[in-house]
């Protein structure tokens, strides 16, 4: 925790300010964490107790977790979500890193037009293009699977290209120019100079897409709702709640289970993650 030292502004009530600020911090902190605490505590109740007016599990009951794992095709749901998130991320990197590099580090005519088109594609609601794209996938007989959500990443993801470009812009062109003088081609500059320097940026773009795919609800709803074998876990959770009526304990156990991978990844990659959100806009 940070202790305030050397406040430059108001001197008379430095301690009072500190107390006021930290009271506020603690209050907001409690409100922030309370929902998660309630979710966890309910997941540790028996199904019966979850329907009563108690807030603390008594006794602690892990049966909901056992039931979640035994009664639901969790392995399949997680497998689908992992397949979706991993492949989408890998495909995105393959297609979008070179694209972002070209936009950020190579001067050429038309770059700005392309960039603008990418921005517009990024900001446009996906529903605007949903019908023709759906028709296209259904003519390829790929509806009912996750492929319509995975494959497009091979052709670049607008948001990722945008994000990566912002990172690549922070790398001074002089590094590339130096390499070019050694008659290194653009591909060489990309792989040997820019990628190593932009590793944190690439990591955060990858994490963003990974989380986006892992959490996606609209995409799986559109393309896989009719085929339970293809459901990823996020979509499964929404459906599961419908089928299990008022079993809040099991629902909350499921909610906890689906959060775990995301939180674990976050704590391992926190730095890249937060920088990704905050610093992508710092351009030259």
């Amino acid at each position: 925790m940070t202790v305030s030292v050397g406040m430059t502004r108001r001197r008379p009530s430095r301690l009072l300010t500190w107390i006021a600020e930290h009271t506020l911090l603690v209050t907001i902190g409690v409100l922030t964490i309370a929902p998660i605490v309630f979710v966890i505590s309910t997941s540790l109740m028996s199904s019966r107790q979850a329907l009563t007016a108690t807030l603390v599990p008594n006794p602690v009951d892990f049966s909901s977790y056992i039931r979640v794992f035994t009664e639901l095709p969790l392995g399949q749901w997680f497998g689908n979500a992992a397949l979706y998130a991993v492949l989408a991320t890998v495909f995105m990197l393959v297609s979008s890193v070179p694209a972002a590099y070209a936009l950020a580090q190579i001067r050429f005519r038309g770059a700005n037009l392309i960039f603008t088109a990418i921005i517009v594609a990024m900001l446009l609601p996906p529903q605007v293009t949903a019908v023709p794209v759906y028709v296209m996938w259904s003519q390829l007989h790929l509806t009912g699977t996750l492929w319509p959500l995975i494959l497009p990443n091979l052709l670049g993801d607008a948001f990722s290209i945008f994000l990566l470009r912002q990172f690549f812009l922070t790398i001074p062109k002089e590094y590339g120019d130096a390499a070019r003088l050694d008659s290194t081609g653009e591909w060489g500059v990309l792989t040997r100079v820019v990628v190593p320097m932009a590793r944190p940026g690439i990591a955060s773009a990858a994490i963003f897409l990974f989380f986006h795919s892992w959490n996606d609800y609209y995409g799986p709803l559109l393309y896989t709702s009719e085929n339970p074998a293809a459901w990823p876990v996020s979509y499964g959770l929404a459906t599961f709640r419908g089928q299990h009526g008022t079993d809040w304990s099991m629902t909350m156990a499921m909610t906890v289970v689906i959060m775990i991978p995301v939180v674990v990844i976050f704590f391992f990659a926190q730095k890249a993650f937060v920088e990704g959100i905050a610093l992508t806009g710092v351009k030259g």
């Binding site: 694209a99 070209a102 038309g110 392309i114 605007v128 293009t129 023709p132 497009p152 052709l155 670049g156």
Partner: peptide, 25 residues
């Protein structure tokens, strides 16, 4: 030459824009 390389690097993304953005619109 630079432009050519850049366009090659952008080719998948441009194709993506055409298929998933311009055409559906």
């Amino acid at each position: 030459r630079r432009r050519r390389v850049a366009l090659v690097m952008l080719a998948p993304a441009l194709l993506g824009l055409a298929i998933f953005f311009v055409y559906p619109l």
